[in-house]
Nucleic acid binder design. Structure first.
Lengths: 204, 204
DNA sequence: CTTCGTAGGCGTATGCCGTACGCCTACTAG
DNA sequence: CTAGTAGGCGTACGGCATACGCCTACGAAG
């Protein structure tokens, strides 16, 4: 075997992630990443087939970092699911600019698969099985990724809330009121509160 | 006032949507939309400041089409929320290629705002108010957009399910089993089942 | 130690893209 | 009729992803 590869996929992903964290998602380009690595643009193509594959590496780098160790085996299953959901949220939250990429590439992520496997273990232990387990897992995953996006891309958190409070009161009286109420609900409470609703529903 | 505008924003959005539905999201370009409208590329810029604004028009065109009329006033609130959620899902489902765009531009959508207002009316009538109403609305919206994305961008539906069933059984025994179980759960049951869990949680 | 095959890496070139800019044209209000 | 504004077009530029072909560095086989 001649000449070992000098760059690992992990190094590629880290370089791309550094570009994104510094210049935003719009700053991501093959040229920028190559420069970040100190190599020529075309050198990159020795490691990835195209930009899409590079994006997949970035998503896997971010999502693969989620801690999927089974949390505190003694704890009630609700708490364990909550811990797992919180970990996924925190992992993505560390790189908010990547969120739009995760939307398109999530399904290739081993990290999410491992996370799901751990969640399934907790659910199974709690007696959830068969088709119900399918539905519950999908509901949890759906809620978590939706909530993450609302948190990082939506209004109702930060400046959006005040913008929303200024809506035409005639047409959106309840939205305006809700935006006002939302000022005292921080992102953590919102995420955990919604998750608690879902967990309540699973308990029933 | 000289010379009236010859194109409405709605016409612009429809042309762009036609391009997307025909050539996919990747086929969307200022040139393609201009050609679709039978005008020169730069003519488009009389109507939109940039591509971003065109995308926003498309999202608004799609999301604005959701029926936000209060559903059957006599029905229980659970059913009414279910109907509203289903409408949003169906509206987006009519143009799956647009889903990634909705992620980045949803917050500008009057359609979603109107939808939320109607949901809030139902919730309020059901006795949900204050901070709890904030959390419930966000949870519902989070679940619905997350579920829509899982449905249109994820595996576990269609070919993804079988791909998932072929995972290394040693590392993902539960995922494999769940993928097998998922074959008998269609997208409707999955969506409605998860939503029912959330509604159960709200009821508690 | 030599040789040879493979992968690494680079530069060039192509064809898209968004869009800045300046021109002529069609229209309508006075 | 005339003036002024908005509509519309063509050209041009810089940045993008990437196909292609070249030289180079390396490690294994002889």
């Amino acid at each position: 075997m001649p000449r070992p590869r000098s760059l690992t996929p992990e190094q590629l992903a880290s370089a791309a992630l550094a570009v994104i964290d510094r210049d935003g998602l719009a700053g991501l380009s093959m040229r920028a990443v190559a420069k970040e690595l100190g190599m020529s643009t075309m050198g990159l193509y020795r490691y990835v087939a195209d930009r899409d594959e590079l994006e997949r590496l970035v998503v896997e780098r971010v999502l693969g970092a989620v801690d999927t160790e089974p949390p505190e085996p003694g704890a009630p299953w609700r708490e364990r699911v909550t811990v797992l959901a919180g970990r996924l949220r925190a992992t993505v939250g560390a790189h908010p600019e990547v969120v739009p990429l995760t939307v398109t590439h999530r399904h290739h992520s081993l990290g999410v698969l491992r996370w799901s496997e751990t969640v399934l273990a907790v659910l199974t232990e709690a007696g959830v099985e068969g088709e119900r387990r399918v539905v519950v897992l999908r509901a949890l995953l759906g809620y978590v990724i939706g909530a993450i996006q609302l948190e990082h891309l939506g209004p109702l958190s930060g400046p959006g809330t005040t913008a929303l409070a200024a809506l035409p009161a005639a047409e959106f009286p309840l939205m305006a009121a809700t935006a006002r109420d939302a000022r005292t609900v921080d992102a953590d409470r919102e995420f955990l509160g919604g998750l608690a609703l879902l967990l309540d529903g699973i308990t029933v």
